[in-house]
């Protein structure tokens, strides 16, 4: 930050949308041609991209070149000057004029929001004070009678899987819907599996030795969700990350043999159905399911808390399978 002017210049460039592209900026021939097109319409006025391409092809044909075999990004009649690695991107004049209003307006809105929010944050009741409105009788009820009503030691788990079990069902359904729509968007018919075994033996061995520990920790967090910090969401996330590590270490073919995609989607659907069946009765009886039909057990024992343990298992399966499904879908797309 010593070189203030240069740094400031970067920020201004960024805000104007004229940021230079980094080394991994897209560099394919289509894009090169598109850049040339942008510069052309900046100089000569607007023109459809298709028309521009047609014109260029005609030009090349007039020069006696074979338009099919010629590389698009290296037209011989216009020898490419050696371009600098980070040349500033140019924006066509038409778009620049339209975007100017938009950019100024959005900066203005953002600044207004920031000022209003800061004023509100400074006038809120102090951080960490006990007489805040958020700490009302709802939280008091959950904390005072949570253990006898839900049988769970962890009040957060008791809250999301007993008092608010209906909402958690909706959230699990959101996860399921996101996984299904991603699968629809990225569906690759002919998927090739590779047996990628890690870049070098050190990383591979380290991953292999870490894998059981991570999976065991994930299972522990899910199963102990009503007794200690954690639960289906946290443990499911850890399990999903562990499965991804397993796929990286063992290779995709091996993982596809152990846990094929079909099994994953079946497990998710079954877990969602099981959740619905277990909590279904309370959805029909006015969502008042604190009656105590199911024995709560002694708080602190592993078999306690009524339905919280099986519900935690269901949520854990849903979250872990969704995370792993995302990974396999994104992986299969690049082949």
């Amino acid at each position: 930050m010593k070189d203030n002017p240069q740094w400031l210049e970067r920020v201004i460039q960024w805000a104007a949308g004229q940021e230079q592209e980094g080394p991994e900026g897209p560099e394919d021939p289509e894009r090169q041609e598109f850049q040339e097109y942008l510069e052309y319409i900046d100089a000569h006025g607007y023109m459809e991209f298709g028309a521009y391409r047609y014109m260029r092809r005609r030009e090349r044909a007039a020069l006696g070149l074979d338009a099919v075999t010629e590389a698009i990004h290296n037209p011989p009649h216009q020898p490419n000057p050696p371009k600098p690695q980070h040349r500033p991107r140019r924006r066509p004049g038409l778009l620049r004029r339209q975007l100017w209003v938009y950019r100024v307006l959005s900066v203005g809105v953002a600044l207004c929001l920031a000022v209003i929010f800061t004023a509100v944050a400074l006038s809120l009741p102090g951080f960490g004070e006990t007489d805040v409105p958020a700490l009302n009788e709802v939280a008091q009820r959950y904390l005072e009678r949570g253990m006898e009503e839900t049988g769970a030691v962890n009040a957060v788990t008791g809250l999301i899987l007993e008092y608010r079990a209906f909402d958690t069902f909706g959230e699990s359904a959101v996860l399921f819907a996101a996984a299904v729509s991603t699968a629809l968007l990225l569906n690759a018919p002919g998927r090739r599996l590779r047996n990628y075994r890690g870049p070098d033996p050190v990383l591979s061995t380290l991953g292999r030795s870490l894998l059981p520990v991570i999976l065991l920790f994930g299972v522990y967090v899910v199963v102990n969700g009503h007794l200690s910090p954690g639960g289906g969401f946290s443990g499911g996330a850890v399990l999903g990350a562990g499965l991804i590590l397993a796929s990286l270490v063992l290779g995709e073919e091996e993982m596809d043999r152990l846990l094929p995609q079909r099994t994953m989607s079946r497990a998710t659907t079954l877990a969602l159905l099981a959740y619905g069946l277990m909590k279904g009765y309370s959805f029909f009886t006015g969502a008042n399911h604190l009656g105590g039909e199911i024995p709560k057990g002694t708080p602190g024992a592993i078999l306690s808390g009524g339905l919280i343990l099986p519900l935690n298992l269901c949520v854990g399966v849903i979250v872990a399978c969704t995370m792993y499904t995302f990974y396999t879908l994104f992986l299969s797309r690049e082949e």
């Binding site: 910090p229 639960g231 969401f233 996330a237 990350a241 991804i244 995370m323 994104f330 992986l331 690049e334």
Partner: peptide, 24 residues
């Protein structure tokens, strides 16, 4: 519980999905 979830999800899964998108 939030710490465990954020570590597994934010630092693990989300970043991995971004990397896979870039690689694709």
């Amino acid at each position: 519980d939030l710490a465990v979830t954020e570590a597994a999800v934010g630092a693990g899964v989300t970043s991995l999905l971004f990397f896979l998108t870039l690689r694709g």
